[in-house]
């Protein structure tokens, strides 16, 4: 018989985890339930975190935005803090799944699932997000890219959970984007996505800072800091963005799957940076 626990206190969570170290954490279920059905698995113990109030908060503190691991995509969508401070992440959740999935799914689940197609991930990468992990006795901070090891793999220990995400508030002059190419507009897994953050000088042309992170074109989210550096000091132009995209495309090794071919994905890696000019 399966057991499902929905603890109200962190202490109760740790207790369950201690009794059954194999207990599976259910953050929202939009990934886990599909996975269990597909594999025909019937785990002995499932622990849902939905009643842990402290994991469901969004707050600004010391120039940081802290998002609890159990904050749903819908919460992100509705949050004035996210809308005002992290428009790129906000854009990502507007195109994530569809309303029922956004009400069920959580940012922590999206991160720990570690899919290269996860819609919040590229934005978190360009925001230099840091994950706070907790065990019953300790906590540690890890940059998001160090938490995610590969497709479906994270470095969480056996008795460790993702507690919250900390994001430094970006410069008010930075503009951010999230472009997603899915097979349709809603309820789609991305074929290729791009989050970017761009800061230009007062001349409205010279690039002061830029960050780019692509989804669905490698084992994890792909960022090329070396390439980003090359753009700094350059004038923003279609040619520059094209050239930048083409170089990035030559550095990724996407796969062909049911959603798209490697060839198409590489073209998207190349083209998506130019999309900034469609919206700027």
């Amino acid at each position: 018989m399966n057991s499902i626990f929905l603890p109200y206190k962190m202490g109760d969570l740790w207790e369950v985890k201690q009794k059954d170290p194999e207990a599976i954490i259910l953050a929202g279920g939009t990934g886990l339930l599909v996975f269990l059905r597909e594999k025909g698995l019937h785990p002995h113990t499932i622990v849902g975190l939905e009643n842990l109030w402290e994991l469901k908060q969004i707050e600004m503190q010391n120039g940081e935005i802290r998002i609890g691991a159990m904050v749903t995509h819908q919460q992100l969508l509705e949050s004035p803090v996210i809308q005002a401070q992290l428009p790129g992440l906000h854009q990502a959740v507007t195109v994530l799944g569809y309303p029922p999935i956004r009400h069920m799914g959580t940012i922590g689940g999206n991160i720990c699932t570690a899919s290269p197609a996860g819609d919040t991930l590229p934005s978190l990468y360009v925001l230099n997000a840091v994950a706070e992990l907790r065990t019953p006795t300790a906590s540690r901070l890890l940059p998001i890219q160090d938490l995610i090891k590969g497709p479906g793999q994270n470095v969480l220990g056996r008795d460790e959970i993702l507690y919250q995400i900390r994001i430094p508030v970006p410069s008010p002059s930075a503009v951010s984007f999230y472009f997603k190419v899915g097979q349709r507009k809603a309820l789609a897994i991305s074929v290729c996505s791009l989050a970017s953050m761009l800061q230009v000088a007062e001349d409205e042309q010279t690039i002061v800072d830029c960050r780019f992170a692509w989804g669905s074109v490698g084992p994890t989210i792909m960022r090329f800091p070396g390439l980003e550096k090359n753009l700094i000091g350059e004038k923003l132009s279609l040619n520059k963005l094209r050239e930048f995209g083409q170089t990035a495309a030559s550095m990724v090794s996407p796969i062909t799957d049911i959603r798209g071919s490697a060839e198409y994905r590489r073209m998207l890696v190349s083209n998506l940076p130019s999309k900034m000019l469609q919206t700027l």
Partner: peptide
Amino acid sequence: LWEDFRVENGEVLTRNLASYILPTSMD
């Protein structure tokens, strides 16, 4: 535009509604 039921060597590749793309109201 979207519905591409794929069969390769007699094997169905688009096994369910996750990979067989029906239009939604957004599309």
